[in-house]
């Protein structure tokens, strides 16, 4: 009897030790405080909706003529970054919006941190909120992005993976290191007191390890964004998220 009981206990302990291997992915939302989560959950209290409202006005003015109502873009943001065969390059959603402006509207490009670009990408991102991220794992970009994610870089000689895979949940300075899933961009970040793109977030991490910052429209930026999107495949779009 006693043997069976201890055997059963051993089996239980063993299976408990094995099952955490399939650890679920956590978005930045899961690692945020209750207050930050509540701010994201309530559209009326989420400051990012100021940008969404501005995006609606811009949409009606500039985009509606070709695209119709913004609601027709459900699912679009969840597929980015994607390969554009005509331009023969990988495009982030922001790059697509800029391409629409320059190539189809003949308007000057937005700077990467232009509030209007944030407003439009927040509006388009919101149309996919709740849908699973679903970027095409297209080569060679995916492998390029993964190589960047794993390369030790900068004066501090750290890789994205060393923080976001191996040390997620630990504290870097005062911040909890998230798993680094790009589920909610553009996002309102409390520390910025404003809205920022995924590129802005990556710049912060690159600066943090004292590495070279690649340009917003560089192949590196798009490849890394694709790797992050594929790594988070199936996780829900949260745009516009609120982050610490």
């Amino acid at each position: 009897m006693k043997i069976w009981a201890s055997l059963a206990a051993a089996v239980l302990a063993l299976s408990a030790a094995i099952s955490p291997a399939a650890e679920p992915r956590r978005s930045g939302y899961d690692d945020s405080s209750r207050e930050t989560q509540a701010m994201q959950d309530d559209d009326a209290g989420n400051p990012a909706f100021l940008w969404v409202r501005q995006g609606e006005a811009l949409w009606d003015q500039d985009c509606k003529g070709c695209h119709g109502a913004a609601g027709t873009l459900r699912g679009v943001a969840a597929r980015y970054p994607l390969f554009d065969p005509r331009a023969n390059r990988l495009l982030t959603l922001e790059q697509r919006i800029v391409q629409c402006r320059t190539d189809r509207m003949g308007a000057p490009a937005f700077a990467w941190d232009d509030e209007r670009l944030l407003a439009l990408s927040a509006l388009v991102g919101l149309q996919s909120r709740g849908l699973p991220l679903n970027a095409e794992p297209r080569e060679p970009f995916l492998s390029q992005g993964e190589a960047l994610f794993r390369e030790r870089i900068g004066q501090l000689n750290l890789s994205c993976a060393q923080c976001h895979e191996e040390r997620a949940g630990l504290r870097l300075s005062g911040a909890t290191i998230p798993q680094g899933h790009a589920t909610g961009y553009p996002a309102y970040r409390l520390e910025w007191q404003g809205m920022g793109s995924l590129y802005r977030r990556l710049r912060n991490c690159l600066n943090g390890v004292r590495a070279e910052v690649f340009a917003p429209d560089s192949p590196e930026a798009a490849a890394l964004a694709l790797y992050l999107a594929v790594r988070a495949k199936g996780m829900r779009v949260e745009t516009p998220a609120v982050r610490p």
């Binding site: 870089i153 900068g154 004066q155 191996e166 040390r167 004292r210 070279e212």
Partner: peptide, 19 residues
């Protein structure tokens, strides 16, 4: 180790211009 090797510059990649 994630700890950087203080006093060295060899073997570093993509260091920002300021550093």
């Amino acid at each position: 180790t994630p700890m950087p090797a203080y006093g060295h510059v060899d073997g570093l990649h993509r260091v920002g211009p300021a550093w």
